[in-house]
Nucleic acid binder design. Structure first.
Length: 281
DNA sequence: GTCTTTACCTGTGGGC
DNA sequence: TGCCCACAGGTAAAGA
């Protein structure tokens, strides 16, 4: 399940593999992956060269010659694999970029949730999802005052607010559980009822956690691997995700698993209390 | 406008 | 062994 650190790891791996390669032709085996008209997608990309790969939140932005950008979202289980063109196709291969040098970039996705869309470079704001994306979760882009103001606009629980990507980009289910545990905030705490102290702690935790996870090359829970097929190393650093029934590392209380907004949610019922402006209920 | 629910998909694993 | 079903979760779209 790629979240921002996993997507960043994929970006770095792919940069080393496909920059300056030119597309000879494209095979589309599952058309729904492609948002554009299939024929347009193939014809427009043929002959183009990958010049750079950027990332915004969990979106990969492949910059091509001719002022084109291929926006790719891996959603749940999307992966890219670099292979020789003659290598037999494996199951779940949906899009193939064949290069002029005999290699190929293949997009694999067991659940077919991933999407690709070709746009003119600079028109990123025409992609729904990209245009509403909050700041990157870095000290440079993500400011505590703006964060506090954004939280004030939501009455619903903090967890789904963080998952929406509008307040801050890049967090998924795993890291939201982690940063809420770190900042000792209950996942059901209404976003507009966090204290200044809680907001500051959460803000710090988000920036620090994303930095640590990127340094560890992401988390491998079920199926995530980078462009070389390697696993990330961060799963060992998770304090609550997937640890229901185990003692909390801070207080020893048994970690619980519940559902919040249809999502599996892990938290410590002792450290993370529902509060009214900081006062435990 | 906000918030909730459902659809998209398939593999895995638990229960019987 | 085999069948059924809940579950995994990012995002868009539909519904309340």
């Amino acid at each position: 399940m790629p979240e921002l650190p996993e997507v960043e790891t994929v970006r770095q791996g792919l940069r080393a593999l496909i920059l300056n390669k030119t597309i000879a032709n494209i095979d589309i085996l599952w058309p729904k992956i492609i948002v554009n008209d299939q024929l347009f997608f193939k014809q427009t990309l043929t002959g183009q060269t990958f010049e750079e790969i950027d990332r915004r939140g969990k979106y990969l932005l492949f910059r091509l010659s001719n002022q084109l950008t291929l926006v790719s979202h891996l959603r749940m289980e999307g992966k890219y694999r670099m292979v020789p063109q003659e290598q037999p196709l494996t199951k779940h291969t949906h899009v193939i970029f064949n290069f002029t040098d005999g290699t190929a970039l293949r997009y694999l996705d067991v659940r077919k949730f991933g999407r690709m869309q070709l746009i003119p470079t600079g028109a990123e704001n025409t992609v729904s999802g990209l245009k509403q994306l909050g700041p990157e979760p870095t000290a440079a882009d993500f400011k505590v005052a703006a964060f506090a103001a954004a939280l004030q606009r939501h009455r619903k629980a903090i967890k789904p607010v963080l998952l929406e990507q509008h307040v801050v980009a890049g967090l998924g289910n795993i890291y939201v559980d982690e940063v809420l545990w770190q900042s000792q905030i209950h996942p059901l705490q209404p976003a507009n009822q966090l204290t200044d102290t809680q907001i500051k702690a959460l803000h710090q935790a988000i920036i620090a956690e994303m930095k640590r996870a990127i340094a560890a090359k992401g988390t491998t829970i079920r199926s995530y691997t980078d462009a070389y097929g390697a696993s990330g190393g961060f799963q060992l650093a998770l304090a609550v995700y997937g640890r229901e029934g185990e003692p909390c590392q801070r207080c020893g209380t048994t970690i619980l698993k519940t559902k919040v907004g249809q999502r599996g949610t892990h938290f410590c019922p002792h450290c993370q209390l529902l509060t009214t402006k900081g006062v435990a209920k």
